[in-house]
């Protein structure tokens, strides 16, 4: 047993940098410029522009999370079963981009996807049909998948590689084909990792404004951009906070939903 007093610095930290700022957001979100209580800031989400941004955010986050899952699961499965994966080298390769600055990585995609950018020029050179992807929702999904894929791979890989080989052997022994073993044993047992991965990709995707600003060319507004503008362009801290609170509800909702399927073993990161 550690002495309780050892935890005080952390409690102080939590109070100063988590609880108090959160209370400020709640305060700003629930008051108007005069300081009077109002729900108008929350209701601001209902305006056409804002709700469109929210639903676009939800849609794109959902899509990028799904793509990440589809890419990450087979990879994690293959890596956990191969000597290559167990050595950790391939996993290391997938984590390597995370050593570089997040902005830099996203900017790199701007250079790659831009009209007359690297990919476009390459297509032109090879006489292939050219298509415009920069400044579209597709480019934003691209960026989200690229930036957040490691957060999907790691928890799933961790959980799958910890599954007892003999449990898999037992399923085969009892007559299950490799496919039956995958969906009756391996997948259910890996669910905690999948849930962790989904949470860790979905939430940053939902709140991002950097990816949409850079790859959406400032024309596509996600809810993160709307909130950013409310604060940075000096429109209204009150509306910005109100929208943040609404977004928070969605995040809390998604976490509650995922924790229902998670028996507590999966939070590996």
């Amino acid at each position: 047993m550690y002495r309780k007093s050892l935890s005080y610095p952390y409690l102080l930290w939590a109070a100063a940098f988590i609880i108090i700022p959160l209370l400020f957001i709640v305060y700003y979100g629930l008051t108007d410029r005069t300081g009077a209580f109002t729900l108008e800031n929350l209701a601001a989400i209902a305006t056409a522009e804002h709700s469109k941004a929210l639903f676009l955010s939800l849609g794109l986050s959902f899509l990028s999370t799904a793509i990440c899952l589809l890419l990450a699961y087979p990879l994690a499965l293959i890596l956990s079963g191969s000597r290559l994966g167990r050595s950790g080298f391939v996993i290391f390769l997938f984590i390597l981009p995370m050593w570089m600055n997040f902005l830099l990585r996203t900017l790199a995609w701007v250079v790659l996807l831009d009209t007359n950018g690297v990919l476009d020029s390459l297509f032109k050179l090879m006489g292939l049909p050219r298509f415009k992807i920069i400044n579209t929702p597709a480019a934003i999904v691209f960026g989200m998948v690229y930036d957040f894929l490691p957060f999907m791979i790691l928890p799933i890989y961790n959980v799958i590689s910890k599954i007892d080989k003999n449990v898999v052997n037992a399923a085969r022994d009892l007559g299950a084909s490799s496919f039956q073993t995958l969906y009756k044993i391996i997948f259910p047992l890996s669910l905690p990792g999948v849930i962790s991965g989904i949470t860790m990709v979905f939430i940053p995707s939902l709140t991002t404004f950097v990816i949409s600003t850079l790859l959406g060319g400032g024309k596509i507004l996600l809810i993160g951009n709307v909130i950013e503008q409310e604060f940075m362009k000096g429109t209204s801290w009150h509306v910005g906070s109100g929208l943040s609170l609404v977004l928070m509800l969605f995040i809390i909702g998604s976490m509650v939903l995922s924790s229902k399927y998670d028996n507590g073993e999966g939070n590996v990161l």
């Binding site: 007892d164 449990v167 037992a170 022994d173 007559g175 084909s177 047992l189």
Partner: peptide, 17 residues
């Protein structure tokens, strides 16, 4: 293994948790 008419009891039980 799934096509063989024999079954195995593994060392660490290997139950489906």
């Amino acid at each position: 293994p799934n096509k063989r008419q024999l079954n195995t009891v593994f060392q660490k039980y290997a139950l489906f948790t």
